[in-house]
């Protein structure tokens, strides 16, 4: 698993496309546009989640932060099984960093931010590689 993070609008998705030279055989799931990723029997090689923060934002409207964390631990565990089925399977998770502003006024937004932070920690600890993207430039931190 490869976790790619950094601030919003820093070119994270473009970096992933460039870095992996992604064209075909990719299942690209967007947290800003689609329902959350259901485990499917995907035949291609690469799965990209773009905008994990988007899915978590939806969860934060109805769930507590620790429940969100547990939920994503389970979803990720399922996809890790897919990743390990074959040597050439790649699982890439992209999430915007929301952690460096002032504490949000609304409880829902605080929950969103908290849950993101925790889920990101879990994703990073399971990942073999972690990069922070700064205006298109990567800094590998793991």
């Amino acid at each position: 698993m490869h976790f790619v993070t950094g601030g919003a609008y820093n070119g994270k998705s473009n970096w992933v496309k460039r870095f992996y030279d992604l064209e075909s055989g990719v299942l690209w799931l967007s947290g800003y546009q689609q329902d959350e990723p259901q485990r499917i029997d995907f035949q291609g090689k690469t799965v990209v989640w773009q905008g994990l923060d988007g899915w978590i934002q939806e969860d934060a409207k109805k769930m507590a932060a620790d429940a969100i964390r547990e939920k994503w631990q389970e979803i990720i565990a399922g996809w890790r099984i897919w990743e390990k089925e074959r040597n050439d399977h790649r699982f890439i998770v992209i999430g915007s960093d929301l952690s460096k502003g002032i504490v949000p006024m609304e409880a829902t937004n605080r929950r969103w931010r908290d849950a993101c932070g925790w889920v990101y920690q879990d994703v990073a600890s399971l990942s073999s590689r972690v990069d922070i993207i700064w205006y298109g430039i990567n800094q590998r931190i793991k």
Partner: peptide
């Protein structure tokens, strides 16, 4: 200036502004 790394909400001014500044920075 660095773009704020905080929750940004769709359609808000901060969203438009952040996206523009981020794109120009890139």
């Amino acid at each position: 200036n660095e773009v704020a790394q905080e929750p940004i909400f769709q359609k808000q001014l901060l969203h438009i502004y952040g996206r523009m500044l981020g794109t120009i920075h890139q």
